[in-house]
């Protein structure tokens, strides 16, 4: 009888500890925090386009995250009352680049060119990046996860090349 009791406690203990580990893992899978709580919606509604800040989106391989110079073109003087806006100018004082956190990450062995998709393939930014004009907070995860299945599916639909080495470099 003791044995049965013991084994019940053992099983309970094992499940409890496993569960708490998983819970801790879930909590520690932290959301990326951007240095500035950038509001895409307000910028787009004021007439900015994607390429005004992500300058390479149409012309280059990489769309790029905006540097301080880009922000300072408008924000060298205060435009609004947001405390987030003041942070931009405080970064300008340190002469350090804004430490944006990249959320769209491709593995190193994949070649992806924005120019190929946007300029030559005629894709809209929103097809991969989602409706940015509605986002008042910085995105915390990729709208379309960077998975090979997603690439293949879209390439198949649009009859783009599915040859391995066209993307795997």
């Amino acid at each position: 009888m003791d044995f049965v009791k013991n084994s019940w406690w053992l099983t309970f203990g094992a499940f409890f500890s496993l569960g708490s580990f998983m819970f801790a893992a879930l909590l520690s899978d932290s959301v990326p925090v951007q240095p500035i709580r950038y509001n895409h919606a307000i910028h787009i509604s004021n007439g900015l386009g994607c390429e005004d800040c992500h300058v390479g989106a149409r012309r280059n391989e990489k769309a790029t995250l905006p540097g301080l110079d880009t922000c300072m073109q408008c924000h060298s003087e205060a435009v609004g009352q947001s405390p987030e806006e003041a942070k931009v100018r405080s970064f300008a004082g340190t002469s350090q680049p804004i430490p944006w956190v990249r959320i769209m990450q491709l593995p190193e062995h994949v070649y992806f060119s924005h120019r190929r998709h946007v300029a030559l393939g005629g894709m809209k930014c929103a097809e991969c990046h989602g409706p940015m004009e509605t986002r008042t907070e910085p995105p915390t995860k990729a709208f379309r996860p960077m998975k090979m299945d997603n690439c293949i599916e879209c390439h198949r639909e649009r009859k783009a090349s599915n040859d391995c080495n066209d993307c795997h470099r």
């Binding site: 593995p107 062995h109 040859d163 391995c164 080495n165 795997h168």
Partner: peptide, 15 residues
């Protein structure tokens, strides 16, 4: 490894 339609013998390193 395989051969592309254009005749290049390719190697997909990740695979």
């Amino acid at each position: 490894t395989g051969i592309t339609p254009e005749g290049i013998v390719r190697q997909t390193f990740a695979r």
